[in-house]
Write a protein that binds this DNA or RNA. Sequence first.
DNA 1: TTGTACGCGTTATCAC
DNA 2: GTGATAACGCGTACAA
Lengths: 342, 342
Amino acid sequence: MNKPLKNILLADVAQEAGVSTASVSRVLNRAPHVSKQLRSRVETAIEKLGYVPHGSARALASRRIGAIGALVPTLDNAIFSTGINCLEQRLKHHDYRLLIATYRYDLDDELEALHTLIQQGVDGMVLIGHDHRPSALTTLTRRQLPFLTCWHSIDDANWPSIGFDNTAPAHALAEHLLSLGHRLLAVVGAPTEGNDRARARLQGFIQATERAGCPIPPERIITVAYGIAEGFQAFEALMRLKPPPTAILCGNDILAFGVMLAAQRAGVRIPDDLSVTGFDDLPQARFMTPALTTVAVPAADIGHQVADALVARIAGETPAHRQLLDAPLVIRESTGPLNTTA
Amino acid sequence: MNKPLKNILLADVAQEAGVSTASVSRVLNRAPHVSKQLRSRVETAIEKLGYVPHGSARALASRRIGAIGALVPTLDNAIFSTGINCLEQRLKHHDYRLLIATYRYDLDDELEALHTLIQQGVDGMVLIGHDHRPSALTTLTRRQLPFLTCWHSIDDANWPSIGFDNTAPAHALAEHLLSLGHRLLAVVGAPTEGNDRARARLQGFIQATERAGCPIPPERIITVAYGIAEGFQAFEALMRLKPPPTAILCGNDILAFGVMLAAQRAGVRIPDDLSVTGFDDLPQARFMTPALTTVAVPAADIGHQVADALVARIAGETPAHRQLLDAPLVIRESTGPLNTTA
DNA sequence: TTGTACGCGTTATCAC
DNA sequence: GTGATAACGCGTACAA
């Protein structure tokens, strides 16, 4: 059963089938102008010998590796892993593999990982967001490597993108709270350094409140790392303020869950005593008690569309430079009118 | 700034530095017996020309691609994405890239993906669990490809592994409930086909209850897909039973969250009216109200250790064939004594 | 439609 | 220590 100490090469298949190596290669690559008989003879030879093409040799000769690279801040964030999951599945349909690198929101690490992936010879690259080291762009364009950014909506001639507006829904969320009568708002956001999405959301919150003549003072805007525990602690910090906020805008659902769970522990009723909003619409959001008001981020769609568009670019096509997906507000029960009887 | 229409090759570097291509290659690969001066001359030439090694050519000549493959059921499961995240980070330290393929618990897909990754030329392979098509093993061993399985504890001479016991903690969880006086137990488990971990956990539940003389009848063991919504619905189905269970054992934390949130909605108090257990210890678990009793799965550790061990195997070493990590019970507040006053 | 022969960019095996 | 040069395994003009 344990056959090949010596590897079986394309040449062996050619010999077995009694044809040239070029013909075998043609069969392998579904080239046109191959007679039925030749094809079947080659195929049986491949079957018989258990031949498997050598990826690297193939890549070297064809200048195509059959894999694309993805640079992701982290996979330890449900919304990213969902997107990547879809991206990979879709790429598989196009017969592309996925090479992943994470950089934990450190743009220098991202740049380094970019170089590594390019060196590996990826046929295309996916990056998250709009914040990158300038030299990333230089590298990408100089190499003429097809690439795409996602998760943001910034209109930039240099960076083709498939994403959604982070600011507008954030703005709408804040307006929603204001319209419910809330004036004592607070924000629990993710760190904005190297993270344009977090920045865009924060700006949405700030703009809406300033425009309404009720700006959020800096001490009511706190920045914490991604995590339930972080949201939990943020709630505690905010509720120590005098007076405590009547509504908390969170930069993402996980932080919102942390806030909600902390409130539950503290006996603070949502939305009666406190309104809370998230951003992402993770599966949990609608099952929380109360169900979380949030923004539905099209993570799966992005994964699919990025795969399609990037493959198209690799094939030499030029799909839309910028593509905007919908990220609708989902108003649920975690937000309610200001309780004036309290 | 946009230099190379013509790619810069190793030969160009050699010429620029006035040395042979062999020497450049030696410098690149940190080979011994290279004089300081030659090294620095080559390095400045590389710098000056902005040379980047060609991965495929390198792989072809060296028979080493610098990437390992991972076959994962899905990334859309926090516990896997956490593990993969750590795996990737650790691999990076060893200067290896990560090629990912998902198969949605379909073992035929897994086998196909295995072939694809092998064809890509990965230097090693990571698989989840012990359930695989037999021919996967044949392929792996015939190719003499270093590989490792994880997340399970099955002692099998064919499959080296780094994992944890799924059965014992499940057993302990059930015993914990029994010791609290519960006799009307129910199980919400994940599909067991092609998933030895789910099967092992289920067996733990069943064994413990049978041994205690209080077996769980089949209609109280329901199988649902991974997801909050699925757990939610499972709760509703189980509570329609006459009599309803007083404790529910869930196959993973996400299902448990679904059950808890459904209970909350239904006004069923946990643990007073119903005890609930999970499995995984996701970050949320300790923040739920009440905090979830569960089993802490060492996802991050597995990621790290798998990376180290696989790299060691690739380097020709033979680390432990089977390595067991701890998966401790975490008793929190979602389980309590049987309420006899109800 | 099929075959020949060369090129892809490195690494590795020799000599020196 | 360093330099020629032959692999590495396949794709693809070009010729037939």
